[in-house]
Design a binder for these strands. Structure first.
Lengths: 348, 348
DNA sequence: CTGAAAGCGCTTACAG
DNA sequence: CTGAAAGCGCTTACAG
């Protein structure tokens, strides 16, 4: 607290009466340091409130102590939860987070990425959809030797660690919940066909239906796009037909919120006349009425796992940053049972 | 594209046949460089795909090209919109964004802030509530000589630039909208009394009511906390009384969503029997039914303005980073008219 | 187990 | 208008 934190490694070395190299060893927790030396240095560090300068460390060494997060989709919640997860780990490890938004519609996505990693010397990069699946970006990172982890990518290229969750299993379990309540006529609103998550969630629904000998009825399955607006359209088609379903599984919460809106609009009582489930546990899930039964994606935890992988890599200074070995880790999701689901009406 | 971007200033100097100092001058757009020199250097830069190393610039110079964003409240949307705003400006200016979450309940908030600014040499810091009003954090930044801008702070300490919006005026205008529709019995749900925004919004409501000779009726004003849960309680008290209001102004969208939920719960039709307005234009505002009439806070724009102030300061390398002069700038809000408001029922 | 030297890639004074 | 020297605060080899 004394000197205002502007002390340098030399100041510490002088005060402790040792070489700067010894101070460096202690700071970096290198082996082969006598306990007495460690104590002397630590005392001087505390006395001067010394904190190593990141730029100098980065310039001289092979680590920058910087993790980058590249995101493309500016829609808030997801990116923010990822950041929180990364920050949780960075804080403990003395790392810092550099955030960069990539304009995914720009032609120079790869060039911008290259600029980032060469200028900033990032020790690792976390990627989320849709950037997870931009071959150009991945190539640039690989060529620059910057390890990266992909969170919930669309495809697993086998090029790097992947942290994800089992969308199909979650969707299956959620469908089972509806079936368990007694529903037989269960509508489904698919997500954007460009996203594999959309496919996997539908797959889970189909599996559960098949397991209970429930036929997939074409008039109960609609093609949405994950957007609220598309949900409105699908919900209208689903609900304004003679034989409407007693439950609807929307592939994400935005579309589920749209289903709820259409139900309100048409005087359909929730959940007594219609059960609705979504997927994601987005902020909306808790503030619509009735609150939405949905699947909570472990986004922050996926980000923490991604950061852990990156931090573990940079820990081994002897080997430099080894190429991040391909691996896959599926984290546990959680079914959030709220009030948007109930048994179907008795007369159905 | 050729050399993979690992070129250094020396490589450029050699290729261009000039000194590294000249390359530096061109890169930094310093004056007194002959046009021919500039061209030669730029050609070499392009040829080698040279990009200056940030660590080296930061270590040698007085600028780090890094803006920091310190946030305390991990609730997503706000922080994320702030980041987007800052990033918009950083991108153009060649700056980068370092994000740090401060645990506002920890005792060492100030110490952690100090660590950040001394280790990272940030050129400027953007602050949002509630950190905007932590005297310890502000003191640390001041002592370290790091310019900072406060976005929508609770109090204006006159210590730095402030970027905000006029909450009272917005609330007044929104109340006018309800009055213009014919409402006279307008309920109000206050926000957390610890936040000045709560006070200002109530003030705006009062002003509009007074301007139309409408009395403030105690049974129509409830004390909320900005949370959805608190909104539920207030809404129940407001709506389950004999003389219920024909419109409710909730001090934020979360509470407004709660009002809507309570209305649905009790079979009160929206907006025909009850109009509801919120504040913030949070993501929920568009996905409840009916969609919420609210005030859009120019969050990203406030962040952009904050970044502009910081970037302008660091631009003057001659003077170093002058202490950021106290100033205040109010940005334009926008009233978002959606379907949650309508004239009151005829018989009221 | 400890240290003296060199160097990371830039910018800052300072000459010319 | 241009350049040679010194130095930012560390870490990397390399000695001892």
């Amino acid at each position: 607290m004394k000197s205002g934190g502007k002390a340098t490694i030399t100041d510490v070395a002088v005060l402790a009466g040792v070489s700067i190299k010894s101070v460096s060893r202690v700071i970096n927790k290198e082996p082969n340091v006598r306990e007495k030396m460690r104590e002397r240095v630590m005392r001087a560090v505390a006395e001067l409130d010394y904190r190593p300068n990141f730029s100098a460390r980065s310039l001289a060494g092979m680590r920058s102590f910087l993790i980058g997060y590249l995101f493309g989709d500016p829609s808030g919640d997801y990116a923010h939860r990822v950041e929180i997860g990364i920050l949780n780990r960075c804080r403990e490890a003395g790392y810092h987070l550099m955030v960069e938004q990539i304009d995914i519609s720009a032609p120079d996505v790869a060039a911008r990425t290259a600029a980032l990693v060469t200028q900033l010397r990032l020790d690792g990069v976390v990627l989320t959809p849709p950037i997870t699946d931009f071959p150009d970006v991945l190539r640039v990172l690989r060529e620059a030797g910057v390890p990266y982890v992909r969170i919930a990518p669309d495809q697993d290229f086998g090029d790097s660690p992947v942290v994800a969750m089992d969308d199909a299993a979650a969707a299956e379990q959620l469908t089972e919940h509806l079936i368990g309540l007694g529903h037989r006529e269960i509508g489904f609103i698919k997500g954007d066909p460009g996203h594999s998550a959309a496919r996997l969630r539908y797959e889970g629904y189909c599996r559960a239906m098949a397991a209970h000998q429930l036929k997939l009825q074409p008039h109960l399955v609609e093609q949405g796009l994950f957007s609220y607006a598309s949900g409105l359209e699908c919900a209208r088609r689903l609900l304004l037909q003679p034989k409407r379903p007693t439950a609807i599984f929307a592939s994400n919460d935005d579309m589920a919120a749209a289903v709820i809106a259409v139900a309100h609009e048409n005087g359909i009582r929730l959940p007594s006349e219609l059960s609705v489930v979504g997927f994601d546990d987005a902020p909306i899930a808790g503030v619509v009425w009735p609150p939405l039964t949905t699947v909570r994606q472990p986004i922050a935890q996926m980000a923490e796992a991604a950061a852990d992988i990156l931090l573990a890599l940079t820990g081994h200074k002897d080997t430099g940053s080894p190429p991040a070995a391909a691996s896959r880790r599926d984290l546990e999701y959680e079914i959030k049972l709220r009030q948007s689901t109930a048994p179907p009406p008795a007369d159905s």
